[in-house]
């Protein structure tokens, strides 16, 4: 009999294959319904501007976030998106609160529940927002609220950093200092932070291995 994990991969792959079909069906249906197929050159020109960086980031993200989110969580998060700014912090926070370890079966369950809940709530918020767009647009575009929306990531990662860095400060020190110096020297990198997540992860892993071998963690 197949294990829970094996079954997760089976159903996860089915959902992923369906999701790929659904995603592709959107532009196909637009083209068919409006009889408006774009020229290949137009699509290639557009892709040339985004594909080199976003294809690279997209592929690297799987190898960086996959182990963190677990199997079920990954099959869901890589369909529903917004991984860095929502799904990964949600999973991380939920596993921390439930006191389960990432990579364990309990961690897999908690991570999946967190990502699924987060996806549902996001979908509901966006749907409600779209329904009440005429009412909400002026409110959400109010300059008074702009600083709040500009600072979602610092607000989110400040709290997470305290929990994780305080518990693992020996490992965290080197990648954190490296990243601060890097961004101070090359501020324009802030637009491609996605690429730097695996760089930070590699430095952390290297540091953890070194400290582990020396028996310091």
């Amino acid at each position: 009999m197949k294990s829970y994990d094996d079954r997760t991969h089976t159903v996860g792959r089915i959902w992923m294959a369906l999701a790929i079909s659904v995603v592709l069906a959107v532009p196909v249906s637009i083209c068919v319904y409006y009889n408006a197929w774009p020229s290949l050159t137009a699509v290639l020109k557009g892709l040339l501007g985004v594909a080199p960086i976003f294809w690279t980031v997209g592929i690297i993200e799987v190898f960086t976030y996959g182990p963190m989110l677990g199997s079920g969580g990954s099959y869901l998060a890589f369909v529903t998106g917004n991984i860095t700014n929502l799904k990964a912090p949600s999973a991380l926070n939920a596993m921390e609160n439930a006191r389960v370890r990432p990579g364990s079966e309990e961690g897999e369950i908690i991570s999946t529940i967190a990502i699924a809940t987060s996806s549902l709530v996001t979908t509901a918020v966006i749907a409600l927002g779209v329904l009440g767009l005429s009412f909400l647009t002026p409110l959400l575009n109010d300059p008074v609220l702009k600083p709040a929306f500009d600072n979602i990531l610092p607000a989110l990662f400040g709290g997470l950093a305290v929990v994780y860095i305080s518990k693992n400060w020996k490992i965290a020190l080197t990648p954190a200092v490296f990243m601060v110096v890097l961004f101070l020297c090359v501020p324009s990198l802030s637009s491609s932070v996605g690429i730097l997540v695996p760089v930070g992860a590699l430095i952390s892993i290297g540091m953890a291995r070194l400290l582990y071998k020396k028996g310091l963690v």
Partner: peptide, 13 residues
């Protein structure tokens, strides 16, 4: 370490 790598990148940003 993977989590810390992610947090470090955003701290730096």
């Amino acid at each position: 370490s993977l989590f810390l790598g992610m947090i470090s990148a955003f701290l730096g940003m």
